[in-house]
């Protein structure tokens, strides 16, 4: 389950997150960003480097599942 949340309308498409993603799970163009649920391991590296807090590790999703 993908636990990384992309805050809508906030991304600046800078690619910093893409540079650290070990799974190449982030697809970024000049105006879209998408995380591939099948590749993402929820490691949170993208969350830590995003300069403007677009990406969030969504704990609530874990709870929802329980």
């Amino acid at each position: 389950m993908l636990l990384i949340k992309i805050t809508p309308d906030k991304c600046d498409y800078c690619g910093t997150c893409v540079g650290v993603c070990p799974e190449d799970a982030i697809e970024l163009t000049d105006s879209t960003i998408d995380i591939d649920e099948d590749l993402c391991t929820n490691c949170s590296k993208c969350v830590w480097v995003c300069p403007i807090d677009v990406l969030i590790f969504d704990k609530n999703k874990l709870k929802d599942k329980e």
Binding site: G19, V20, P22, D24, W48, V49, P51
Partner: peptide, 11 residues
Amino acid sequence: FVDFREMEGAY
């Protein structure tokens, strides 16, 4: 791919 500790996120 870059180690997250070596990536500078800039604003």
